[in-house]
């Protein structure tokens, strides 16, 4: 059973129990499995789904469809921003220009997420890493390698645009480069 299925099963059982309680004692009580403490199962449910403004950084998302990962650079100070931002805090009023991220960087660190957040519980275990690129910028992303033992600090990784399934949207990933390639 995937973590998502386990959670759904847990919710289903709790709701089922509360339904029985509503029929017998009139209120949705459930009980703590260890202490037996009475808990009210909330009858209000809320879905959180934000709409986040990307208006000023639309170019970043448009470039993904061309297979490019972009950053911004302050025209006055030369500071590179990734994640991209359109304001230069060091030189207020200065503009930024869009630049392409280098393709190859070096892995700094990584982890494999086994216990997942609810909204990621439908994925298999995934590796998250941070790589440093020749322009001095670090990028955090999934790493295409599920065995942490096969990764090492300093190994070369390629920054690739990928389609994230099952949602089917474009994002980017760090792909280990085979030795001698």
């Amino acid at each position: 059973m995937s973590q998502r299925e386990q959670i759904e099963e847990f919710f289903k059982q709790m709701i089922g129990f509360a339904e029985t309680m509503k029929q017998s004692v009139g209120v949705p009580l459930v009980f703590d499995q260890k202490s037996g403490a009475a808990l009210w199962l909330d009858q209000r449910e809320l879905t959180l789904r934000f709409t986040i403004s990307v208006e000023r950084i639309r170019k970043f998302f448009e470039a993904l469809s061309e297979g490019k990962v972009l950053a911004t650079r302050c025209k006055e100070t030369g500071t590179i921003y990734f994640p991209p931002q359109v304001d230069c805090p060091d030189a207020p009023g200065s503009e930024v220009e869009w630049i392409e991220m280098p393709r190859e960087g070096e892995l700094l660190t990584w982890t494999v997420i086994y216990t997942k957040p609810y909204s990621f519980s439908h994925y298999n275990d995934y590796t998250v890493g941070i790589a440093r690129f020749p322009n001095g910028v670090n990028v955090l992303a999934w790493v295409r390698e599920s065995d942490p033992g096969k990764l090492r600090v300093g190994m070369k990784v390629r920054l690739e645009v990928v389609k994230r399934e099952p949602e089917g949207y474009l994002t980017y990933e760090l792909v280990p480069v085979e030795e001698g390639q």
Binding site: P83, K116, Y126, V128, A141, W142, P148
Partner: peptide, 26 residues
């Protein structure tokens, strides 16, 4: 950072500290 580090990459709290642990132990 919700949008850039959670939305796409689903880090957990142990995950963030694990990034420190991997680099430190190495």
């Amino acid at each position: 950072n919700y949008f850039w580090e959670f939305e796409n990459f689903g880090l957990t709290f142990p995950g963030y500290y694990a990034l420190y642990a991997t680099a430190y132990m190495d």
